[in-house]
Amino acid sequence: TVKQATTQAALRDLWIGHIFWVRNVALETMDGNSAAAKAAEAEVVSNAKQIAASIEPFYGKAGSDALMDLLVGHYGGVKAHIDATATADAAKQAAASRQLTANAGAIADFLSGANPNLPRATVNSLFIGHAAHHMEQDQQLKDHKYVEEGKTWAAMRDHMYVIADALTDALAKQFPDKFN
């Protein structure tokens, strides 16, 4: 339907915004430009609020707030990995990886619990893959491997489309009256 296509486009845009602004945080952190990294980080937070707000019409304020908490946790792990990569701290990188994996499970628990059309294993896999893209990109930026990072960016973009499309399809199935 038109409403489903509009929702899909909006969710794709929001999730692409996430990787765009996080990439800027990573790039500026690796370059030692703390002012630019801080500005990009403000956009990461703004984008997370928009993503969380996008589910409020379906799951209410409590659902939106719960997703926001999970997105804060996701970004906490991403930022910890960026910082650990910038300083070449392997132990902190490993800790950030564990944090991102745990957060992927928490996001999967929330989304699959809210929507029966989102199997937990699928959502968990999607968000673990997403975290892996962030971590790969961080290292490529740190190592100035920009050709490889360009390929990772393309994979990240396509992966964000898969996440946005899965969410849209699940919402349309769970709330058909809102999509007619």
Rank of each mutant, 00 (worst) to 15 (best):
residue 131 A to F: 11
residue 131 A to H: 07
residue 131 A to P: 09
residue 131 A to V: 09
residue 131 A to T: 07
residue 131 A to S: 13
residue 131 A to C: 07
residue 132 A to I: 03
residue 132 A to Y: 11
residue 132 A to V: 09
residue 132 A to T: 14
residue 132 A to G: 14
residue 132 A to Q: 15
residue 132 A to S: 13
residue 132 A to W: 12
residue 132 A to P: 06
residue 132 A to L: 12
residue 133 H to I: 01
residue 133 H to F: 11
residue 133 H to P: 03
residue 134 H to Q: 11
residue 134 H to G: 08
residue 134 H to R: 08
residue 135 M to T: 07
residue 135 M to F: 02
residue 135 M to Y: 02
residue 135 M to I: 04
residue 135 M to W: 00
residue 135 M to R: 08
residue 135 M to S: 07
residue 135 M to K: 10
residue 136 E to D: 15
residue 136 E to W: 00
residue 136 E to I: 02
residue 136 E to L: 04
residue 136 E to K: 15
residue 136 E to C: 01
residue 137 Q to K: 13
residue 137 Q to R: 10
residue 137 Q to Y: 05
residue 137 Q to A: 09
residue 137 Q to V: 02
residue 138 D to I: 01
residue 138 D to R: 03
residue 138 D to G: 05
residue 138 D to E: 04
residue 138 D to L: 00
residue 139 Q to L: 10
residue 139 Q to D: 14
residue 139 Q to I: 09
residue 140 Q to K: 13
residue 140 Q to F: 09
residue 140 Q to P: 13
residue 140 Q to G: 06
residue 141 L to P: 07
residue 141 L to I: 06
residue 141 L to D: 05
residue 142 K to F: 04
residue 142 K to D: 08
residue 142 K to E: 09
residue 142 K to C: 00
residue 143 D to P: 00
residue 143 D to W: 04
residue 143 D to E: 09
residue 144 H to T: 05
residue 144 H to A: 02
residue 144 H to P: 03
residue 144 H to D: 09
residue 144 H to M: 02
residue 144 H to S: 03
residue 144 H to L: 00
residue 145 K to C: 01
residue 145 K to A: 15
residue 145 K to I: 04
residue 145 K to N: 12
residue 146 Y to K: 01
residue 146 Y to R: 06
residue 146 Y to S: 02
residue 147 V to F: 09
residue 147 V to R: 05
residue 148 E to C: 02
residue 148 E to N: 03
residue 148 E to I: 06
residue 148 E to D: 11
residue 148 E to F: 06
residue 148 E to Y: 01
residue 148 E to Q: 08
residue 148 E to T: 01
residue 148 E to K: 04
residue 149 E to D: 11
residue 149 E to Q: 12
residue 149 E to L: 10
residue 149 E to P: 08
residue 149 E to M: 14
residue 150 G to F: 14
residue 150 G to W: 13
residue 150 G to E: 00
residue 150 G to L: 13
residue 150 G to S: 08
residue 150 G to V: 14
residue 150 G to R: 05
residue 151 K to C: 07
residue 151 K to M: 14
residue 151 K to D: 03
residue 151 K to G: 09
residue 151 K to R: 10
residue 151 K to A: 12
residue 151 K to P: 00
residue 152 T to C: 10
residue 152 T to D: 11
residue 152 T to M: 10
residue 152 T to Y: 07
residue 152 T to K: 11
residue 152 T to R: 10
residue 152 T to F: 08
residue 153 W to Y: 06
residue 153 W to S: 01
residue 153 W to I: 06
residue 153 W to D: 00
residue 154 A to I: 15
residue 154 A to Y: 12
residue 154 A to T: 08
residue 154 A to L: 15
residue 154 A to R: 10
residue 154 A to K: 12
residue 155 A to Y: 05
residue 155 A to R: 12
residue 155 A to I: 13
residue 155 A to K: 07
residue 155 A to G: 02
residue 156 M to A: 03
residue 156 M to N: 06
residue 156 M to Q: 15
residue 156 M to W: 08
residue 156 M to H: 08
residue 157 R to E: 04
residue 157 R to C: 00
residue 157 R to S: 05
residue 157 R to D: 03
residue 157 R to N: 04
residue 158 D to Y: 11
residue 158 D to N: 13
residue 158 D to F: 11
residue 158 D to A: 15
residue 158 D to P: 08
residue 158 D to S: 14
residue 158 D to G: 10
residue 158 D to I: 13
residue 158 D to K: 14
residue 159 H to N: 06
residue 159 H to F: 05
residue 159 H to E: 06
residue 159 H to D: 05
residue 159 H to W: 15
residue 160 M to Y: 08
residue 160 M to C: 09
residue 160 M to E: 14
residue 160 M to I: 01
residue 160 M to G: 06
residue 160 M to S: 13
